[in-house]
Amino acid sequence: MKYIELSVPCTDETRREILMAELSDFPFESFCEEEDRLKAYMPEPEYARCEPEIAQWLRDKGLPCTAEALPDRNWNEVWESNFEPIEVEGRCRIRAPFHPRNPACEYDIEIMPKMSFGTGHHATTYLMAAELLDSDPSGLRGLDMGSGTGVLAILAVLRGAVHMDAVDIDEWAYENGTENIEANGMTGRVQPL
Rank of each mutant, 00 (worst) to 15 (best):
Y3E: 11
I4A: 02
I4L: 04
I4S: 00
L6H: 05
L6T: 04
S7F: 01
V8N: 02
P9K: 09
P9C: 11
P9T: 11
C10F: 03
E13W: 04
R15F: 05
E17W: 01
I18V: 15
L19F: 05
M20R: 13
M20A: 12
M20N: 03
E22M: 13
E22Q: 15
S24L: 04
D25K: 11
P27S: 09
S30K: 02
S30C: 05
E33H: 13
E34P: 00
E34I: 07
E34L: 12
R37V: 02
L38Q: 04
L38G: 02
A40V: 00
Y41G: 00
Y41V: 00
Y41L: 00
P45Q: 09
E46R: 10
A48S: 10
C50E: 15
E51M: 10
E53N: 04
I54F: 05
A55R: 14
A55W: 01
Q56T: 13
R59K: 15
D60N: 15
D60M: 11
L63R: 10
P64Q: 12
T66R: 14
T66H: 04
A69C: 10
D72A: 15
D72P: 01
W75Y: 14
N76H: 11
E77D: 13
V78G: 00
V78C: 01
E80K: 14
E80V: 06
N82D: 08
N82H: 14
F83R: 01
F83K: 03
F83I: 03
P85G: 03
I86D: 02
E89T: 06
R91G: 03
R95W: 01
R95K: 12
A96C: 07
A96Q: 05
H99C: 10
H99I: 09
H99K: 08
P100Q: 13
P100T: 13
R101L: 12
R101A: 14
R101D: 14
N102V: 03
P103N: 07
P103V: 12
C105R: 05
E106V: 11
E106C: 06
Y107P: 02
D108H: 03
E110Q: 15
I111M: 08
P113R: 07
K114Q: 10
M115Y: 02
M115S: 04
S116T: 09
G118C: 07
H121T: 06
H122W: 01
H122C: 07
T125Y: 08
Y126E: 09
Y126C: 07
M128R: 11
S135R: 15
D136S: 15
S138R: 14
G139E: 01
L140A: 13
G142H: 07
G142F: 07
L143N: 06
L143H: 07
D144W: 01
M145L: 15
G146S: 08
G146E: 04
S147Y: 01
G150C: 09
V151W: 03
V151E: 02
L152D: 04
L152M: 06
A153C: 05
A153R: 03
I154Q: 01
V157G: 07
L158M: 15
L158Y: 11
R159S: 05
G160A: 11
V162N: 06
H163C: 14
H163Q: 15
H163G: 04
D165E: 15
E171H: 06
A173K: 03
A173T: 03
Y174Q: 10
E175Q: 14
G177P: 04
T178E: 13
T178H: 05
N180D: 08
E182C: 03
A183D: 02
G185D: 02
T187H: 03
G188Q: 06
V190S: 02
Q191D: 08
